[in-house]
Simulated assay, not measured.
Amino acid sequence: MSENSKAARNRRLAVHGFTEFAAGNVDVLRTLLHEDFIEHSPGNPSGREAFIAFMAGAPVARARLDLKRVIADDDYAVMHYHMTTDDDPRGVAVVDIWRFVDGQITEHWDVVQPVPEAEQVPRGMF
């Protein structure tokens, strides 16, 4: 992937947004999300302002996020990370799929899976 490709640019935007959000900067979403942002996860609202308000109160906004890998291809950036809290140190494995158009996120999908006991996954979740 060339450093100037659309995939490389979207990867940089996704990693920047993730890093800022993980540090507690929910407002970074105002520049990343398109006004007509579409959310595909059940129970999460679409629309930039509704989604930001939802995320500000969601457990992910107070969790520790450990990015494991990023895959980018044309309009999409995929992020795989470990989300933990003090109440749930094993946490969950998350895969986010972000669709970018002209440097803004227009759509989002995710898959969230609880991290089981280590002996249940001898090769690890990550």
Results as ranks from 00 to 15, higher is better:
residue 109 W to K: 02
residue 40 H to R: 13
residue 18 F to A: 03
residue 41 S to H: 10
residue 26 V to S: 04
residue 66 D to F: 11
residue 118 A to I: 07
residue 126 F to V: 12
residue 45 P to H: 05
residue 50 A to G: 05
residue 14 A to E: 01
residue 73 D to N: 13
residue 124 G to Q: 11
residue 118 A to L: 08
residue 23 A to R: 15
residue 73 D to G: 05
residue 125 M to S: 12
residue 95 V to F: 12
residue 13 L to K: 06
residue 82 H to A: 01
residue 4 N to G: 13
residue 35 E to R: 11
residue 101 V to T: 08
residue 106 T to K: 02
residue 120 Q to S: 09
residue 79 M to W: 10
residue 59 P to D: 04
residue 116 P to V: 12
residue 63 A to N: 03
residue 119 E to F: 09
residue 104 Q to L: 05
residue 38 I to G: 09
residue 27 D to T: 09
residue 69 R to M: 13
residue 39 E to L: 00
residue 53 A to W: 07
residue 91 G to C: 06
residue 60 V to C: 06
residue 91 G to I: 06
residue 14 A to K: 01
residue 16 H to E: 12
residue 97 I to T: 14
residue 88 D to E: 11
residue 78 V to L: 12
residue 51 F to P: 01
residue 126 F to I: 11
residue 112 V to S: 07
residue 108 H to M: 05
residue 64 R to N: 14
residue 115 V to H: 07
residue 45 P to W: 03
residue 112 V to T: 09
residue 20 E to K: 12
residue 4 N to M: 14
residue 119 E to W: 14
residue 5 S to I: 04
residue 44 N to F: 03
residue 30 R to W: 15
residue 5 S to P: 04
residue 26 V to L: 06
residue 44 N to I: 05
residue 34 H to T: 02
residue 88 D to K: 10
residue 9 R to W: 10
residue 10 N to P: 10
residue 42 P to C: 10
residue 42 P to N: 14
residue 22 A to V: 00
residue 17 G to V: 00
residue 49 E to H: 10
residue 106 T to N: 06
residue 11 R to P: 00
residue 22 A to S: 10
residue 68 K to Q: 15
residue 101 V to Q: 10
residue 87 D to R: 14
residue 41 S to K: 09
residue 67 L to G: 08
residue 90 R to C: 05
residue 89 P to F: 06
residue 22 A to G: 01
residue 53 A to L: 08
residue 102 D to K: 08
residue 82 H to Q: 04
residue 88 D to L: 07
residue 20 E to L: 11
residue 37 F to S: 02
residue 115 V to Y: 03
residue 10 N to Q: 03
residue 78 V to I: 11
residue 31 T to R: 06
residue 100 F to G: 02
residue 56 A to Q: 10
residue 126 F to H: 13
residue 10 N to K: 00
residue 78 V to D: 04
residue 9 R to M: 15
residue 58 A to K: 05
residue 109 W to M: 03
residue 41 S to Y: 08
residue 103 G to S: 08
residue 122 P to F: 00
residue 12 R to I: 08
residue 126 F to T: 14
residue 23 A to L: 14
residue 120 Q to D: 07
residue 49 E to D: 15
residue 30 R to A: 15
